[in-house]
Each structure stands twice: as structure tokens, then as C-alpha cells.
Amino acid sequence: MCRHQANIPDLTMWDQEIRQMASSHAIMASGVFMATVVPAVLVPGFSVYGTHLLWLYSVAGSVTVVNITLFWLLGVSPPTKKNTLNYKVSRLVRSCLYLLLSCLFFHTVVVLYGAPLLETALETFSLAVLLTSLTTLRCVCVLGPNVQAWIRVFSRHGAMSVWDTSLQMVVGCSIVGAWLGAFPIPLDWDRPWQVWPVSCSLGSVIGYLTGLVVAPAWIHWHRKQLTYKSK
């Protein structure tokens, strides 16, 4: 009771943050939407199944651009200690390095999950790039290139802001979506979306969109129970 009252001023601030998050998520979702529609208009013969890799790159690219822009504009990422150019460059380099490593990591995991090692390496790597842009990129944007913080955020008491909570959900939904996407592959339905990696990339994008919708809604719903520790 006591805490509730103490949190009242917070709540309004939170409402503001949640609204901010909801609108930015709407922009991200529309980015994915545009990445599907725009090439369909511009590129002849474009289709999600037929020219799947093109769609995949376009989504990955748009998610990357929208994410970086939005989080830069919002200034969610933790304040840097030093403000020198050198430090900024090293952060940038480390971020790029982590993104690359994350691509390799996802590639390895997907291969271990049963993707062919050599025959469809390009497709597998593209899926890894997509997964990186949906998950790791957001981690980099929200938490900076700090693996410890990434590990910390995925624990029960690890979220330190609404953005951390939304990060948990979006990343979780994307990965679960990709995981679920593998399910129809063995079925003998002979549909175009059962071809590797269409179902998995579709699954992860659908998961990502779900996460974008669910995160602000869940946070809004549970805003009274959420308490964040200061860092």
C-alpha cells in the first residue's frame, strides 16, 4: 500500500514511457510492413516466398535502420561514462563486432538444430542475420555493447527499466517464433513456405511483431506490480 502511494508520480511518468514505447513499436512494426510492401511495388517479381532472401534482407535492413534511429532519438541507451570521440568509436566498433559474432552464433545454433551444414549455408546465414537484427541489435541499442548486461537482463530480477522488460519480451518472442517456425518443415504438405528457411524467418518476424504488440500491453497491464531497482 505504502509503495503504491509512493509510486503515484512514477506512474504518470510510466504512462508516458509506455506511450512512447507503444508508438515506437508501432513505427518498428510499420517498418517491417513497409519492408514487405515497398519492394513488392518496386521490384518486379518480388514475393515473400519466391524471392525470400530479398524480403529477408529488406526486413532485416529496415528493422536495423528503424531500431538504430528510434533508439538514438529516444536516447534509451545507458549514458556513456566518457564522451570522447575515441570512446565512441570503440563502442561502435565493439557493437559491430558483437553483431557479427551474434550472426555467427545464430548460424551455429541453427546448424546445430539441424539445418544443413553446407548446402544451404547462405540461407542459414541470412536467417542468422535476420535473427541478429531482431534480437541482438535491440540489445545493443538498449544496453550498449555490454555482454554482462545482456546476460543480466535475461534474469527474473534483471530488468531495470520498461525498456529492459520490453527487450526481454521482444527477444523472447522472436526466438520462440523462429523455433516454432521449424515445426512445419518436416510435414509433407509441399507448401512454398515450408522451404528452408522461409518458415523460420516468417516465424521469427511474426514473433517479433507479436513481441512489439505484447510488450507495451503487458507492461501497461502490470504497471502497478512492476518495480525497478536503480542501477
Binding site: 546476460i151 543480466r152 535475461f154 527474473r156 521449424a182
Partner: peptide, 21 residues
Amino acid sequence: FLLFSLSLYIPFRLNWDGFLV
């Protein structure tokens, strides 16, 4: 596939409960 998924879940769960680090 299922075995791999479930075994990946173990460290994830430990981390979620804050026991891994």
C-alpha cells in the same frame, strides 16, 4: 531437435533465476 531445445533451456532457466552468474 527437442532434446537440443530442452537442454538449451536449462542454462537459460538458471540465468533467469539468477543462479548462473
